[in-house]
């Protein structure tokens, strides 16, 4: 017998599978265009004016689409983020044709401005279930976060110390 909660989880899992960006390329291309417009405007304040940032935004759009298409046709699974970052690294390598132009256009797009709208979507997307979940575990997450920072820092320092 199914509880209400697991029914919701199941729906989420199915919705997530359906909405994996690479599985619905047409829909994704439209939504991606909308979020790029948000990032494009967000970039105006601390990045560059709309017209100057346009080529850079278009390059980012194309890189994402290429990454998603590869993720779609590739026989083994790699998350779309991995494909997209790989495409972007390759396109900006020193020996890649036109890399200087690509880097110059992307310089018009501010690093932090692109991520600001993502967090705005995230804030708007939270549901009642998540608010109550966060209320329950919020203080625990603060303790865990400080342990995570300490563990990562000391772990990395010890490995580097041994290697030096």
């Amino acid at each position: 017998m199914k509880t209400h909660e697991s029914g919701v989880d199941q729906f989420d899992a199915e919705a997530l599978k359906e909405l994996r960006p690479e599985n619905q390329l047409g829909k994704t291309a439209l939504v991606l265009a909308a979020v790029c417009v948000s990032a494009w405007f967000s970039n105006v304040v601390n990045g560059s004016p709309l017209l100057e940032a346009l080529p850079g935004m278009l390059i980012l759009y194309v890189m994402v689409i290429i990454g998603l298409v590869i993720g779609r046709v590739c026989p083994f699974y790699l998350p779309s983020v991995a494909w997209v970052s790989l495409i972007s690294i390759i396109a900006t390598l020193p020996f890649f044709p036109g890399n200087g132009w690509i880097i110059a256009r992307l310089a018009e797009v501010d690093f932090l401005a692109v991520v600001t709208p993502v967090l705005a979507y995230a804030g708007l997307a939270l549901t009642g279930r998540e608010f109550s979940m966060f209320k329950q575990t919020g203080w625990k997450l603060v303790i865990v976060a400080l342990l995570v920072f300490t563990g990562t820092f000391i772990g990395s320092a010890v490995v580097a110390h041994v290697m030096l």
Binding site: P21, T28, V31, L32, V35, C36, S38, A39, M57, I59, L60, Y61, M63, V64, G67, L68, S80, V81, V84, S85, L86, I87, S88, I89, I90, A91, T92, L93, P94, F96, N99, I102, I103, L106, V109, F111, V114, V115, P117, V118, Y121
Partner: peptide, 16 residues
């Protein structure tokens, strides 16, 4: 989907 343009921007700092 919105995080993907950021990932692309981010990779472009590594290539050079």
């Amino acid at each position: 989907i919105a995080i993907l343009p950021f990932i692309a921007k981010f990779g472009s700092t590594i290539g050079p």
